[in-house]
Amino acid sequence: MSNKHKITKDPLTGAETTGHVWDDTLQEFNNPLPTWWLWAFYATIIFSIVYWIIYPSWPTNFAKRGFIEGSTSISFKADSIKDGKKIVGGGEEMSVPWNTRALLAHEMQNDPNELKRQAMVKKVAGMALADVAKDPDSSAFVRAYGKGIFGDYCAACHQAGGQGVRGHYPNLVDDAWLWGGDPADIETTIRKGRKGNMPAHKATLSDQQITEAANYVLSLSGEAVDTGLAASGKEIFNTKGCSGCHTPAATGMKALGSANLTDKIWTQAHVPEADTIEAKVKAVKAVISGGIQREMPSWEARLSGDEIKVLVAYLKLLSSN
């Protein structure tokens, strides 16, 4: 416990003690803060009050709005909604007490960089793809901004370089498009999403039949398969329903997203990874027997029509390289 004691002076330094003594002899020196430091501390308290008012979080219209109305206001244009279609910033000008939500709306309508972004998105969306490639400004924007959107929305499946994951997500840089490679087709794919379905055939075809069909499919891409098996495989291909989607020429149909089987491009079967012809047959057999269930989500709720057009331009730049 401490006891009242006389304040004493240290003979060496001249510093005074606090006057408290613990356990008979334990004392402490009194080393107060420098005066200027202490006053700087008081100044920060005064500053915080001023800052509170200017920030603004000092309630000014307490009776009407409670605690939330500050001393400054911020303006932005409200949205207009007509026939279920929303036009951002299409409504009347509003002025509200400063808050971060209003600040965001204000920035989206007035920030110079944001306006530049919007203008570029609009410009590229209105251009023909061939012109985008010719205009250095536009193609630079597409490469930079398109890469950003692609990274956010597409790369999780199609990978950062657009190379896809065999067996799951198609390659976007190989110039083969399951659902059509015209800009309009790609736009529809992004806008609406796609559901890719190939039925499993393990219940309807015997293992031997699946082997034959696999040999035929590989022969279409010029693989050195057993010609006898491939010939009976062709029969199965044409009579057991394969040609219904893949067409008798096996070139696929973009309306169904059925793959072209003659182009040596394998989005689903792990053929390129296989070293031997047996392994290749096995890889194709796995797809025929198990079928394919693929789904790409629709993006029109997340991306604006113009942004989707920029994305299409980006994909076209990617696949043309």
Partner: peptide, 13 residues
């Protein structure tokens, strides 16, 4: 959110 005016949410702050 495509059916809501942004101003609607701003008024709560």
């Amino acid at each position: 959110f495509s059916k809501h005016d942004e101003a609607e949410f701003v008024k709560f702050r």
